[in-house]
Design a protein around this nucleic acid. Sequence first.
DNA 1: GAAATATATGTAGTTAACTACGTATATTTG
DNA 2: CAAATATACGTAGTTAACTACATATATTTC
Lengths: 158, 158
Amino acid sequence: MNVINESGILAIATRLQRLSDQLRKDGFQIYKANEIDFEPKWFPVIYTLHFRPQLGVVELAAEIGYTHPSTISLLKELEKERIIRSKKDKQDERKRLIQLTEKGKKLLEQMQPVWENMVSALEELTDTSNNIMKAIAEVEKNLDELSFFERAKRVAKG
Amino acid sequence: MNVINESGILAIATRLQRLSDQLRKDGFQIYKANEIDFEPKWFPVIYTLHFRPQLGVVELAAEIGYTHPSTISLLKELEKERIIRSKKDKQDERKRLIQLTEKGKKLLEQMQPVWENMVSALEELTDTSNNIMKAIAEVEKNLDELSFFERAKRVAKG
DNA sequence: GAAATATATGTAGTTAACTACGTATATTTG
DNA sequence: CAAATATACGTAGTTAACTACATATATTTC
């Protein structure tokens, strides 16, 4: 990985992705080591439902930042695992309200201490002179103001 | 994305991936706008071959940080596009040496000014109080010393 | 209130990475 | 030097996201 790491900022997408994958894989191993039957990709759904106990599919998708088809397939898995269930909204017949089951709530409780360990470990890992979470937030803010595409266009013209 | 963004460091993998995707998509649009027939995912291969003009498949894979099957499928695409070609290594008959074609070299030249624009745009985007590239490098260094998994285990025990 | 538009959900197919496994050649070891 | 092991490459199948399209219900507008 020498050339790519030395290529600097051009390889930023590749490096972000690699880091994400690495953390996700370890996350899976951590759940496993704690005998919790849980996949890291389920995290956004479960975590969101913890704070907002009833959400439609599209609302949930928006909340976790995935497209709704991706969310639907996550929900199918979670439904199969009996971690979530859903019911029709009486006000809006198109809507399916997603909720945690009792099993889901128990799982959530089981996971709390593991999450705390993960948070500690991640804080250790990211306790560096440049904080990666803050860096992400700052880049996202800049992107909101003007996209990468628009910036490259402007640079080219200027 | 409110709940997830507020969940802090636990959602780090999700957020890294999302940022990576966003940059990659815009990257594709930038090449397109400059009338260059190039996909961002090809970048690591091309860029590496620019600096190391002859590499075996596994060597190249290691260099770009992908698995070799992923690399093979990238190489197939690039071969179809006539951007790279390969020949047998005379010293080691198992090996297939990958090289840029003339077309590949021309493409590389064409891309130079676009890369410069991208670098400028990315520098703008990442010119923040916490530098994301440095943050990634720092986290990677910490991970090299002790993985996320090992750290979480240690925290749990301690 | 009928037509047009918007919203919520779902399905099908694609993509770009991965793991697992197999084969051929090279290298090391008893 | 034969056997065991390692390395290089390849194929098949999986995964987790995506886009594009379809359908049902709700809301808005003329």
